[in-house]
Simulated scan of single mutants.
Amino acid sequence: MSGHTAAQGAGDGLGPLRPYLLVRGRSEPSRDLDRTTLVVIATVGAPHAAPQPYYLPILETCRLGACSLAQIAGTIGQPLQVVKIMVCDLMDDGYLATPMPAGLRDPSEAGKDPRILEDVLNGLRNLP
């Protein structure tokens, strides 16, 4: 083995795997997520495909409640970019979703909700 360290396969019996192998060499997620994006176990619809075994630690982490991508990366010990891609895969397959603010039924309503707009404005004001 070269001087590079391999990432552990999260106790799945696969042994050490490099992070880029976990996402089949992809470097870009299918969605625009950042490290503070919260995800939860999806409650609507059935998943489209069985998850890969090394995706299971993400699902286990999210079973406890809403988790940020940074929190997931720290918990499972994988780089944030790899976690972004894995979370997008799980979202695309119907396992994970981003939580909706209370009272919203449709994501398109978020841009019209004064509470959300106020939160966004406060967040922008707090930027350095």
Rank of each mutant, 00 (worst) to 15 (best):
S2M: 13
S2N: 15
S2Q: 12
G3W: 09
G3M: 11
H4R: 12
H4K: 10
T5S: 07
A6Q: 03
A6Y: 02
A7R: 06
Q8I: 05
Q8H: 04
G9N: 10
G9F: 01
A10C: 10
G11K: 11
G13N: 09
G13V: 09
P16H: 09
P16G: 11
P16N: 13
P16W: 04
L17Q: 11
P19W: 07
P19V: 04
Y20Q: 13
Y20N: 12
R24D: 12
R24A: 12
G25P: 11
G25K: 07
E28P: 00
E28Y: 03
P29Y: 01
S30H: 14
R31Y: 10
R31N: 05
D32S: 12
D32C: 10
L33S: 00
R35V: 14
R35H: 11
R35N: 08
T37L: 03
T37K: 07
T37G: 05
L38Y: 02
V39G: 01
V39T: 04
I41F: 04
I41A: 06
I41V: 15
T43L: 10
A46M: 13
P47D: 04
H48F: 10
A49R: 15
P51N: 01
Q52L: 15
Q52C: 09
P53Y: 06
L56C: 07
L56R: 15
I58V: 13
I58K: 00
I58G: 00
L59R: 02
E60P: 00
T61M: 04
T61L: 04
R63A: 14
R63H: 14
G65N: 06
G65F: 09
A66N: 04
A66D: 03
A66C: 02
S68A: 11
L69E: 01
I76A: 01
G77S: 09
Q78I: 00
P79N: 04
L80K: 03
V83C: 02
V83L: 08
K84W: 04
K84G: 00
K84A: 07
K84E: 15
K84P: 00
D89V: 00
L90D: 02
D93S: 15
D93G: 01
G94T: 10
G94P: 00
Y95I: 03
L96Y: 02
T98G: 03
P99K: 09
P101D: 02
A102K: 14
A102Y: 06
A102S: 14
G103H: 09
G103N: 09
D106N: 15
D106A: 11
D106I: 01
P107R: 02
P107D: 08
S108Y: 13
E109G: 07
E109P: 01
A110Q: 02
K112D: 12
K112I: 06
D113N: 15
D113R: 04
D113Q: 07
R115K: 08
I116W: 01
I116K: 01
D119L: 10
D119K: 03
L121A: 13
N122R: 15
G123Q: 12
R125N: 09
R125Q: 11
P128C: 10
